[in-house]
Design a binder for these strands. Structure first.
Length: 957
RNA sequence: GCCCGAGUGGUGGAACGGUAUACACGGCGGACUCAAAAUCCGCUGCUCGCAAGGGCGUGUGGGUUCGAAUCCCACCUCGGGUACCA
């Protein structure tokens, strides 16, 4: 690249690397980015006075340190937050910016299973690599605050938070979580009554009381249908299962199984999680994704009596207005009422039955060889349970089910309607049972067609309706009995009316249901946080704070028992650590032997609260000091603690919903002072890259492909170009390390910011990087003599035009930095520098005022070279806290502006006029223009539009 | 299927309803050089024209407006989310 002719002090990659490592060392030695807390261990003696400034908490979604290290796509958001943070430091904010690691998780464990290397060793090596890579980018993080979720000193507090959740219950009357001791106290004095089976509190024994309290906790052991993944040997949260019913990690089949697992009662927060979205500065699309996930729907619960039984089937429906059209019912196959209502024999005299068609799951008896209802139910349940989620998806929406032999009564008209079980009804949603209204529901229509069930329309479909279910609005029909008449009412009115009738009759109520389920919180893994829980013969008990942390035992075999058998039972690795799992403790009634919880927490646990630990990472007495938390949360009217949170959209529901939930629990219990964790959320785009395949479709090393005449060649071989995720499999990995070596970190940082808006995804193109490098080289040359390395600025006034441009640039760059519009800020700096270059060429030196302002404006983007230039321009201190330039408003007004003159909307001339020229003056000037006169000749002016300072338009005929 | 979001030069991308294509890459031409690289300067949406100048242009088709990349309607393509949620 460079040879002997190149001036010694030209800004080259070598020079860049040299000054970058010097400045990184200096920032470290001088503790430049140590951010003071208002009190406590992190107040310190460096920058302490800054604790009096207004705070700004900037946060990145912390990374999982994978063995592959960073590629160029990873740091996009990190650089964006760093630019923003540096800019705000120069604006007099006390900025907290740190980087930790979300280091529990499957890859380290799977690597451990393969190699026997302890996951902690792998994890620590990976973190070391990441830290070195991140340091080389010059990110201004406070190194003291970068916690890892795997640090014992960190997960001690993750366990502590779990205990807060375990020891809390949700007080619906006050709509907040409270400590269970308060529940016990209220029950003891009788201001609150148990809401389960009516046995008075005073008459319950200790075990009954304990089990009642356990049933109220926000963390509880529940038996629920869970996503069991035998291929991974663990259960998964709904959020970890893909749409086609496989595990997000590893792509194994997932089955629904009822298992006892830890659950967190996030559903109690559904309404608040929904409502508080309104006050967050998040994009509408993320809010919408969260709203959809929470899935609030309003409707009614209606009881259908079962013929011949003293039982009723409760259904949830969002369309109570269609109740008259309910012609059958469907229960989920595993619905608890099924066994109770299934008769031993098929009902007599039915005109319903076509026993011999052999059609799968038809009216009765023909499911497999089933001859009786119990046989049919058993056979169908086996059929449904044997299907994995994938198979269900693959079969599409084909409706299957069996008649249970039972009938229920439609409360509106007394008609007896058959009761089915079918897997299109899910146990986990609503009541696990539906009333089927084929006339107004597509799924019910399909099922009714498959099973020849009657269809009654209760909403008038529009003329020309093609015959299937009509789900739109329209007047009710066929919907009247002796007491109530919905006919003619629209859907909304009909709903209101029927709910009133149901409530008056005591057979139903208006209700709200959520799609959101409680959070399945156990994993059968080794490399996660152990629960601070032990069991006696009656159930789980919390360990006291004094016994935290519960550390992971040393093991050599980390593998959970995996299996191809969907019916295999979970066997967590910690269960094999016998010594560890059995423990003698005195929990208040003498030394006894307990069994530890052998599941671990999911990876989301540690990432639910790391931003709080950044605030006070070394505190051994509390998760975070209260006053410190308040300082970093409140700058007047904060609703969320973090001011700016930047990360990928892939965490739109999982992480962000879980973290909001934990934060709200902590808020209710008085541990944090804002109701939400993240005030402003910004989703950065992805960087992808081109990949190339040869004739066989095999990927070839992208860095060795050359473009010639619009075609791509790998050696002599023609290859075709694709576009996709950066990764080993596409052979298109480019690392920040390579870019730093070839151009320097400043060039790399600026290129990432220049490629496009931060929230847009874009292709990496190494070829384009050189443009930013040239800019830095030109700016350097404008300030520094390339032969001597001395500053070449002069204390001259810049030309009026340059000065005006400088202030216009300051104004634009400030605005762009504040709104994360880094690509356009860079374009402005390029323009300023191009103008400065011309002035330097004309006069031989750069005016100091322009050079210094340029350097300060560059600093957030390219901090190393900016520091070096600042230093060479004669400043001893780092510019990290130097005030950012401020534009002089007087210089923002141009002396002339160019105004387009249009004839019939087409630009025909441009006028140079004073910016404050009024409409009359503009019109006169436009009419005086020769070219305009030409276009107006022989035409009649119908209308003249003049917008002062903007444009003139003549409409002619 | 449903719900979002996006389609602008050869490429990445600019553009409060008011001069479309800022800035950069690439390309072309030139300076420097024995030469090349690096560096510097100029040109670069398509099209007709010697030129002056004109026509056409922001996925497609309509609409609103004096004026639309921008607002509205329909459609096409791509990306994301979600999926029997009653």
């Amino acid at each position: 690249m460079t040879n002997d002719d190149t001036p010694q002090h030209r800004y080259s990659a070598t020079l860049a690397r040299d000054l970058e490592s010097r400045w990184q060392d200096r920032w470290e030695t001088e503790r430049t980015f140590w951010t003071p807390n208002p009190r406590g261990a992190l107040l310190g003696d460096v920058n302490a006075e800054r604790a009096g400034l207004p705070k700004l908490f900037v946060l990145d979604m912390f990374p999982y340190p994978s063995g592959a290290g960073l590629h160029v796509g990873h740091p996009l958001g990190f650089i964006g937050t760093d630019v923003y943070a540096r800019f705000q430091r120069m604006n007099g904010r006390n900025v907290l910016h740190a980087m930790g690691f979300d280091a529990f998780g499957l890859p380290a464990e799977q690597y451990a299973v393969q190699t026997g290397q302890h996951p902690r060793v792998t994890t620590e090596q990976n973190i070391t690599t990441y830290k070195a890579q991140l340091r080389a980018l010059g990110l201004g993080h406070d190194p003291r605050r970068g916690v890892s979720t795997t640090d014992v000193a960190y997960y001690r507090w993750t366990q502590w938070i779990f205990l807060q959740i375990f020891n809390a219950w949700y007080d619906r009357s006050n709509d907040r979580a409270r400590h269970v001791d308060e529940l016990v106290a209220e029950l003891d004095v009788g201001t609150r009554l148990p809401d389960d089976d009516g046995v008075p509190w005073a008459e319950r024994d200790a075990m009954a009381r304990r089990s009642y309290i356990d049933s109220k906790r926000l963390a509880y052991v529940g038996e629920a249908p869970v996503n069991w993944c035998p291929g991974l040997g663990t259960v998964l949260a709904n959020e970890e299962v893909t749409a086609d019913g496989r595990s997000e990690r590893g792509n194994f089949a997932v089955y629904k199984r009822p298992l006892k697992q830890w659950m967190l009662r996030i559903t109690e927060y559904a309404d608040r999680l929904l409502a508080d979205l309104d006050d967050l500065d998040w994009t509408d699309s993320i809010k919408l994704m969260q709203r959809n996930w929470i899935g609030r729907s309003e409707g009614a619960e209606v009881d259908f009596e079962v013929v011949g039984h003293d039982a009723a089937i409760a259904v949830f429906t969002t369309r109570p207005d269609t109740l008259f059209g309910a012609t059958y019912m469907v229960l989920a196959p595993e619905h608890p009422l099924v066994d109770a209502i299934v008769p031993n024999d098929w009902p007599d005299g039915s005109d319903l039955v076509d026993v011999d068609t052999g059609r799968l799951g038809n009216w009765r008896g023909v499911f497999g060889a089933a001859r009786t209802p119990p046989e049919a139910v058993r056979a169908y349940r086996a059929f449904a349970a044997a299907k994995s989620e994938v198979e269900r998806a693959a079969e599409g929406r084909e409706k299957t089910g069996v008649f249970t032999g039972a009938f229920a009564v439609n409360p509106t008209n007394g008609r007896q309607i058959p009761v089915f079980i079918a897997d299109y009804v899910l146990m986990g949603y609503g009541t696990g049972a539906i009333m089927a209204v084929p006339g107004q529901d597509d799924r019910d229509w399909e099922f009714a067609e498959a099973f020849d069930l009657p269809i009654v329309r209760t909403v008038q479909a529009p003329d020309g309706w093609d015959g299937t279910a009509f789900t739109g609005d329209g007047p009710a029909i066929n919907s009247a009995n002796d007491e109530i008449d919905l006919n003619g009412l629209g859907v909304a009115d009909a709903k209101r009316t029927i709910i009133g009738w149901l409530e008056a009759r005591g057979v139903g109520t208006g209700t709200i249901t959520y799609k959101l389920r409680d959070w399945l919180f156990s994993r059968q893994r080794y490399w996660g946080e152990p629960f601070p829980i032990v069991y006696d013969e009656h159930g789980p008990l919390a360990l006291p704070d004094a016994l935290l942390p519960v550390e992971l035992p040393e093991m050599t075999d980390f593998e959970p028992a995996t299996s191809d058998d969907p019916d295999a039972l979970p066997a967590p690795p910690l269960a094999r650590a016998e010594q560890w799992a059995t423990v003698d403790l005195d929990l208040g009634d003498g030394l006894r032997t307990y069994r530890r919880e052998v599941n671990t927490m999911p990876q989301w646990a540690g990432s639910c609260w790391y931003y709080l630990r950044y605030l006070d990472p070394t505190n051994e007495d509390a998760m975070v000091d209260r006053a410190t938390e308040q300082y970093w949360t409140n700058d007047g009217n904060d609703f969320g603690t973090v001011d700016l949170y930047v990360g990928g959209v892939e965490h739109a529901v999982l992480h962000l919903l879980y973290a909001r939930f934990w934060h709200k629990v902590l808020y209710d219990l008085g541990h944090v002072s804002a109701p939400e964790p993240f005030q402003r959320l910004f989703n950065q785009g992805y960087i992808q890259a081109y990949a190339y395949t040869d004739e066989r479709g095999v990927y070839v090393e992208a860095s060795e492909v050359a473009e010639r005449d619009g075609e791509y060649f790998f050696g002599d071989q023609r290859v075709s170009r694709e576009y996709g995720k950066i990764g080993k499999s596409l052979k298109n990995v480019v690392t920040p390390d390579e870019m730093c070596a070839e151009y320097g970190a400043d060039t790399f940082r600026m290129y990432e910011m220049f490629m496009g808006p931060l929230d847009a995804s874009r292709p990496w193109n190494t070829r384009d990087v050189v443009g930013v490098h040239r800019f830095l080289q030109r700016l350097w040359r404008n300030c520094i003599d390339e032969n001597t390395g001395e500053a070449r600025v002069a204390d001259l006034a810049p030309s009026a035009a340059l000065e005006r441009l400088l202030h216009k640039t300051i104004d634009a760059v400030r605005h762009d930095y504040a709104s994360l519009g880094f690509n356009t800020a860079i374009a402005r700096l390029f323009e300023l520098n191009n103008a400065l270059t011309r002035e330097v060429e004309a006069t031989g030196s750069a005016p100091r005022s322009v050079a210094e302002a340029s350097v300060l404006m560059l600093a957030p983007l390219a901090p190393h070279v900016a520091e070096e230039l600042w230093h060479r321009l004669g400043h001893d201190a780092s510019l990290a806290y130097e005030p950012f330039p401020v534009a002089d408003p007087a210089l923002l007004v141009a002396d002339t502006v160019e105004i387009p003159v249009q004839v019939n909307g087409k630009v025909r001339a441009k006028l140079a006029v004073a910016p404050d020229a009024d409409a009359a003056a503009l019109e006169a000037a436009a009419l005086a223009d020769a070219r305009i006169a030409e276009h107006l000749a022989g035409k009649q002016i119908v209308k003249t539009v003049v917008v002062p300072g903007r444009m003139v338009n003549f409409v002619v005929r």
